[in-house]
């Protein structure tokens, strides 16, 4: 029933479902919810429960309905977790997080190297070049890079975004595989 509501074909419905779920996770993450995936799945479950009457009465974009339910979930989560949330923020302070131990760092580094090797040579060189200049120099350097490639800076940024996405997924998978081996 959910898939029929999300799209006219199975493929279309599948793509919409993935898009909605990922946006729900991102929404909860951006609102500092620690269990974002769980909250996203709870949101979807709530929508599924309402579906029998909903498909006839609701006329807008289904994705916006999920968004509406997610906002209510968020309010509930904030009420339930306000004390815990405050404590978490205090614990974390202004630091981006505790430093990982050396074994974990080594593992991450190995995964990064492995995933960089998996990239096509052109993309690998591109991203390493993109990240090679420190601080302010990188802004001018990237402008220069884009000019040399004959593209706009925005196109270069989009290209980097794609490569970064592939790399991030690969590293996540590599770390998960390492965890399952240990």
């Amino acid at each position: 029933m959910l898939f029929a509501w999300l799209g006219s074909t199975r493929e279309e419905a599948g793509a919409t479902y993935e898009h909605v779920r990922q946006n729900l996770i991102n929404l909860f993450v951006r609102n500092n919810c620690l269990d974002a995936e769980d909250l996203a799945d709870q949101t979807i479950d709530r929508v599924i429960k309402k579906l029998p009457g909903l498909t006839e009465s609701y006329t807008g974009d289904p994705a916006l309905y999920f968004y509406g339910v997610a906002k209510n979930m968020l309010l509930e989560w904030r009420r339930q977790n306000s004390a815990h949330s405050e404590a978490s923020m205090d614990e974390l302070g202004s630091s981006p997080g505790a430093e990982p131990d050396s074994t974990e760092s080594d593992l991450r580094f190995k995964c990064l190297e492995k995933c960089l090797q998996k990239l096509p040579r052109k993309n690998r060189n591109l991203i390493l070049q993109y990240y090679s200049e420190e601080k302010r120099a990188k802004i001018d350097f990237r402008r220069e890079m884009a000019r040399n490639m004959g593209i706009d800076v925005i196109n270069l940024r989009v290209r980097m975004h794609r490569i970064r996405g592939i790399l991030h997924k690969c590293i996540k998978k590599c770390l998960a595989e390492s965890d399952s081996v240990q």
Partner: peptide
């Protein structure tokens, strides 16, 4: 504030260090 985002930052730091 979330592990996921800190994870992203660590990944970016590592990539920067490797490239530099």
């Amino acid at each position: 504030l979330t592990p996921d985002r800190r994870e992203r930052v660590r990944g970016t730091e590592m990539l920067r260090d490797y490239a530099v």
